[in-house]
Amino acid sequence: MALDAEIVKTLEGVTTATITTVLLKLGLRNTWIRGTKPLAEGQPRIVGPAFTLRFIPAREDLATTASWSAPNSTRAAIEAMPEGCVAVADAFGVTDAGVWGDILCERMVKRNIKAMVTDGVMRDGAGVKASGLPVWSQGQAASPSVASMTFIGWEEPIGCGGVAIFPGDIIVADQDGAVAIPASFLDKVLELAPEQERLEGWVVEQVRAGHPLPGLYPANEENMARYRAYRAEQEAKEGQNG
């Protein structure tokens, strides 16, 4: 399930904004997970395969503190997570009870889990931040999950922030939020996203130099020719320095 280091390195160099643009060009409009914001300032861009977690509305006989010790529990799910994954919790947008808190996050750090992404909220905000686990969520709440949710299981298709996510889909999260790349689209994103990032970087430089946007963004044939000449020049310099 772990991603190749080169794949991770490539996607770490691409913004979620660029990825959503590339996926849109590939026909996928609904990939940005709504309601997920960085819990702490300065969180790095993270990349990893999704390990899915599913909650449903609380039912009194199931959503109890005793359920935390059950074989099918959030605690057991953490032990099933492979190193390098991103835990993605479907909390169906609940914001009055935390998916989980600092102790569980500390365990995830020990198990080398990359991050947590949820359309819900977290408990123990200060402790979660202190754990060092990067988290994307809707914020914080004091109440435990069982106040409003029942944990159902892991590694099944979920809907998080209005996006369908399957186990193994690739999650990229940065300061703009989190995006899900369907596993079957990964190769195309790896092919197209770095070039899209380079092109947009060049466009920004042109705008700063005073060029008008019509014909520049999106680039017409004339400007694409200018861009290709620029890239050829850059590659030649890189070849000389290499």
Rank of each mutant, 00 (worst) to 15 (best):
E6C: 00
K9H: 01
L11E: 00
T18W: 02
T18K: 00
I19G: 00
L24E: 14
T31N: 05
I33S: 05
R34V: 10
K37Q: 11
A40R: 02
R45F: 02
V47A: 06
G48K: 04
P49G: 09
A50L: 08
R54Q: 15
R54T: 15
P57H: 15
A58N: 11
E60V: 07
L62P: 00
A63Y: 03
A66S: 05
S69E: 07
S69G: 07
A70L: 10
N72A: 15
R75V: 07
M81F: 07
P82A: 08
P82L: 09
A91H: 03
F92P: 00
F92W: 02
T95A: 11
A97E: 08
G98K: 09
W100G: 15
G101T: 02
D102S: 14
C105D: 13
V109R: 12
I113H: 04
K114P: 04
V117S: 02
D119E: 08
G120Q: 02
G125Q: 08
A126G: 09
V135P: 06
W136M: 11
W136C: 06
Q140G: 04
V146K: 06
M149C: 10
F151S: 09
C160F: 07
V163P: 09
V163Q: 08
I165N: 00
F166L: 05
F166Q: 11
P167A: 14
D169R: 04
I171N: 02
I171K: 04
V172R: 03
A173M: 12
A180S: 10
L186I: 11
A193G: 03
A193T: 05
G201E: 11
H211W: 15
G215W: 05
N220F: 09
N223P: 10
M224N: 03
R228D: 13
A229C: 13
E235M: 05
A236Q: 08
G239I: 00
N241Y: 12
N241M: 05
